[in-house]
């Protein structure tokens, strides 16, 4: 079974493909504007989707909004590389 972080990444990439954004966006790409290009409504949609799937999401529960895909995924667990250090 995939870890929550990997499961969240799969959900996000599927979502990006569905809303015609680049599903292969790098993890350090900015979520908004010239990066992945999410607008506020798309971000709200992603927030609801993640909450439905995993019970919580970083957009609703964090003090500051995540700025990259990696920061979103960090909400669901540290990266494997980080754990290995």
């Amino acid at each position: 079974m995939a870890s929550p972080r990997i499961a969240a990444e799969n959900v996000i990439r599927e979502f990006l493909g569905r809303i015609k954004k680049d599903p292969a966006s790098p993890l350090d790409a900015p979520l908004y504007a010239d990066g992945v290009g999410l607008d506020s409504l798309e971000t709200a949609e992603l927030s609801a989707l993640l909450e439905d799937e995993f019970g919580s999401d970083p957009f609703s529960s964090a003090d500051e909004l995540p700025q990259t895909l990696a920061e979103v995924l960090d909400h669901y667990g540290a990266a494997v590389e980080a754990e290995a250090v």
Partner: peptide, 12 residues
């Protein structure tokens, strides 16, 4: 209207 931290609500 589903509450959203980002837009107040979204259409659900």
């Amino acid at each position: 209207g589903r509450p959203s931290a980002l837009t107040g609500n979204i259409v659900a």
